[in-house]
Design a binder for these strands. Structure first.
Length: 425
RNA sequence: GCUGGGAUAGGGUAGCUGGUCAUCCUAUGGGACUGUGGAUCCCACGACCCGGGUUCAAAUCCCGGCCCCGGCCCCA
């Protein structure tokens, strides 16, 4: 009987993995250029870490189990809580602010759909120890820079939870939650029905959905959140980011406290959100001191679906040889790999010369390096361009230079100056 | 959790108003081809999602399940 992978999980072929790795590295590189350091946390944590403040919704989606010691364990559904737990445990005396990033798999028991899997990857950052306007603007600008670097045009929307929360703070907790949900859905009719007993809010809350900051000022009583948001946006303008203010942005995770933002991309159907983040307070809940922070998570799998860039092509070489010179052929392959850093394969199946060439084509080799008695006698190799069919007997060093030039401008560790980097023994 | 549509070799498909060894393309391995591939020909390989039911007979009809692709909910 054939075994299949569990629902909502995926296998990745070499081609897919190459692309994922390439995109991952680009995002990683940007985070590091902004001074963020990578952290790793456990794949599973005490279930409690996620139930404290992440919100009901996420708890229902947790993969949980008891380990052999009877402990309640959960696979991580996200990384903000683990990273903040780590901060409290190991880094609370590090100089602030602390800039951290992560790239990890997460697990949620949900119904799989386009862009939604049970095991999925998140790339995120946390800026711990500040919620200044500059900190918030940095988080948003960094997210925008990453998304844009990998060729995605996304819609950036920024809001502030304090605006809506300030208006509805006197309502029942349950009504508040429902009001937030309807704001998120932009469901104006639903809001009017829900708030039918509060004639004042019934008009003001839906009006917020279309309001810019100035309009919002006349709708709400406490202007403090608006001043905070205004300050952040002013800094963000220096980064040149394009965004829209949206007071209907209501993050699903309960630990957010102030500014919140989301990014959307076309082409993903119902799961079009590729990034979410904001300002939150979690350290205190995990036993640390009050530490304002802000961060975001990017849905790596969703980003991959819509990103428009491909990894650069690295030239591939197949050494094709006659049986009587197998030793020389292996030596040539080793030289190509070890001394010149060229991706090189050599037949191990006892194929005949013609079949080796055919196989080289089948696996997509860019060049065949041919080794036969003539080449060995001349101390050279024959370099065949598999695309054009042109070939020439030249020194191995010259061959390497040509192979590198054929690869699209990729940097290689060998010097391009010398004429003969390598020679046959 | 609710809802719509699907499932035939590794990939793509025909058959699906039940009835001979389940069609074709492609991929893969080998051969024609002993220092020159992509063509052609031949051979090999390889499938009816699982379990029940109806029937003399089920890939085909019915029921249940699992899985896949969407939508809702929720979220990345």
């Amino acid at each position: 009987m054939k075994l299949n992978r569990p629902r909502g999980t995926r296998d990745f072929t070499p081609a897919e993995t190459e692309k994922r790795r390439y995109i991952e590295n680009r995002m990683r590189s940007i985070a590091e250029h902004w001074g963020y350091g990578e952290v790793k946390t456990p794949t599973f944590e005490h279930t409690e870490l996620f139930t404290i403040k992440s919100g009901e919704a996420i708890v229902d989606e947790l993969y949980t189990f008891k380990d052999k010691g009877g402990r309640d364990i959960a696979l991580r559904p996200e990384l903000t809580a683990p990273v903040l737990r780590m901060y409290v445990n190991e880094m609370s005396v590090s100089p602030k602010p602390i800039r951290l990033y992560y790239f990890e798999n997460c697990f949620r028991y949900e119904r799989p759909q386009k862009g939604r899997f049970r095991e999925f990857w998140q790339f995120g950052t946390e800026l711990i120890g500040s919620d200044s306007a500059q900190a918030e603007a940095e988080a948003i600008a960094l997210a925008a820079a990453m998304v844009s670097d990998i060729g995605i045009e996304a819609d950036l929307r920024i809001g502030h939870l304090g605006v809506v929360r300030g208006l509805i703070q006197d309502l029942d907790a349950q009504v508040q939650a429902e009001a937030m949900r309807l704001m998120d859905k932009k469901d104006i009719d639903g809001l009017r029905i829900l708030l039918s007993d509060h004639p004042d809010l019934r008009e003001r809350l839906p009006a917020l959905l279309d309001a810019d900051i100035d309009e919002a000022r006349s709708i709400i009583d406490d202007a403090q959140p608006l001043e905070e948001l205004q300050a952040t946006l002013s800094v963000l303008d220096h980064y040149g980011a394009r965004y829209e203010v949206d007071f209907g942005i209501v993050r699903g995770l309960d630990y957010y406290t102030g500014m919140v933002f989301e990014m959307y991309a076309a082409g993903l159907g119902a799961q079009n959100q590729i990034c979410g983040g904001g300002t939150y307070r979690l350290a205190q809940l995990f036993g640390g001191s009050e530490t304002p922070s802000c961060g975001f998570g990017i849905g790596f799998d969703r980003v991959l679906e819509v990103c428009g860039i491909e990894p650069p092509h690295e030239p591939r070489v197949a050494v094709v040889y006659l049986p009587d010179v197998v030793e020389d052929a292996i030596r040539v392959a080793s030289r190509l790999r070890d001394d010149a850093g060229v991706c090189t394969t050599i037949d191990i199946s006892g194929r005949k010369f013609g079949q080796q060439l055919k196989h080289a084509d089948a696996i997509g080799a860019d060049y065949a390096v041919i080794v036969g008695a003539q080449e060995v006698a001349a101390g050279m190799i024959t370099l065949r361009d598999m695309q054009t069919g042109e070939q020439e007997m030249i020194g191995l060093g010259d061959a390497v230079l040509r192979i590198m030039d054929g690869g699209e401008g990729a940097d290689h560790p060998i010097s391009r100056g010398g004429s003969a980097v390598l020679d046959l023994p």
